[in-house]
Computed example of a mutant assay.
Amino acid sequence: MFLQINIRGIQTCPAKCFLSFSLSWFIAQFSFTLPPFLPSRVCLTFAMLLHYLWLCIFSWSSILSFDLVKSLNACSKTLKREFKNNSLFVKYCIVGWGLPLLIVGLSNVLEISLSTFTLQYGARNICWIGNSDALLLAYILPASTFLFFNMICLAVSLHGLEIAKRNSRNLQKTRKDRQRWLMYLQMFFLCGGCWIFAYVANNVSLLWMHTLNLILNGSQGVFILIMTTRDSKVKRWIRIKMKCLEPDNSNTSQSNSGGGTISTKL
């Protein structure tokens, strides 16, 4: 997030969306470290919060996919004008933060209304959804829907990139769009692949799968950092900052030559 704010800026809509995605991912990952320090009576509320936060990750990933398709639609002038408008990001926020809230709310309404449906938040002192059937309906199904939507958007945007490559004279812009598409593709495979593996690992009693699951899902932030630092702007910013940290050799040489002159005079 620090790199996104200081290098890419948050003045463009895609950068704001990616920052919101990173923010939801950071809060969700950080929240996973808190349950051992929380009293058991708070676990139910905290499990509901985690349910909401992890759905926010998938909803913002779908918004990034949709925004990528929309930004590559060079034929629509209306979308271009809306793309520069801050009201578009407000609409994205309503969907990105509001849709997961709606899913969590409906899940709790179903739990109250139907005796056969129970989420079991905080069951067995685990701050998560305790019922496997409810987990499938209230979390895995919405997350899978988001991921399926992402794949459709990425396929459509790839088709748009190929058309833009043939018709556009600005090859530099097309190359940047392709780099952005590849970064989103890696991010979405990371987001979906890790959770698919986590679901399999939790239903299989194999120690090595549980260990690998902890490593993969615990290192997702590192993977996002690696993908972010592959950007040319990020690399250039890091090089500039590293040069600023290096000692000034010219001043050092001047001071040494000055000292040598003084010693010679003495």
Rank of each mutant, 00 (worst) to 15 (best):
K176T: 10
K235N: 07
V204N: 03
L101H: 06
P247S: 07
S31R: 00
V109K: 03
R41M: 07
F146W: 10
F26G: 00
Q186R: 09
I196R: 02
L158F: 12
Q4G: 02
T252H: 08
L136N: 06
L137E: 02
L207C: 04
C194A: 14
C13R: 14
K70R: 12
M242R: 12
Q186M: 07
L38A: 06
L216F: 13
I129C: 02
V200H: 03
C93P: 10
I262F: 13
N85M: 02
K173G: 10
F83H: 15
S22V: 14
K176M: 04
P247L: 04
T45E: 04
S20G: 11
L50E: 07
G130S: 01
C17E: 06
A201G: 03
M151K: 00
I262H: 11
W60S: 01
G105C: 05
V109D: 05
K70M: 14
K165G: 05
M48V: 14
N213W: 06
W195F: 11
A201D: 09
I94Q: 13
T174L: 01
S40L: 08
L3T: 15
G96S: 05
D231K: 00
K70Y: 12
V69T: 15
L44P: 02
T116K: 05
R175A: 13
V222W: 15
P35C: 07
N202I: 09
R81F: 08
F21Y: 13
G9Y: 12
A138F: 10
D231Q: 07
N203H: 13
S253E: 10
A143F: 03
